[in-house]
């Protein structure tokens, strides 16, 4: 990856990237908001296993659902 010496440009590029990713994620119905998505991106950029991350998110959502069902009932 070519190094980005201009922080402004870097920021803009990053925003753009996140924009694109967000669009993809809405296309895919991931239910991730922009903020979460950017967290995920930074996690993955830092070497977190994407599969595992996906699993975590799903699991957490499932639990939440369960909890809500339990507690709500």
């Amino acid at each position: 990856m070519p190094p980005m010496n201009d922080p402004e440009a870097k920021k803009r590029a990053a925003r753009e990237t996140i924009d694109i990713l967000h669009e993809i994620s809405t296309l895919l119905n991931t239910d991730l908001d922009r903020q979460s998505l950017s967290y995920c991106v930074s996690l993955i950029e830092n070497g977190v296993n994407p599969e595992a991350l996906a699993a975590v998110i799903k699991e957490l959502r499932a639990r939440q659902e369960r909890d809500e069902a339990r507690l709500g009932a």
Partner: peptide
């Protein structure tokens, strides 16, 4: 075409799994 990301495949795959 975006130069920022180093793990594009990972992110895509992640999105894929989530989706």
């Amino acid at each position: 075409s975006q130069p920022v990301l180093g793990q594009k495949w990972g992110i895509l795959y992640f999105l894929h799994r989530i989706g």
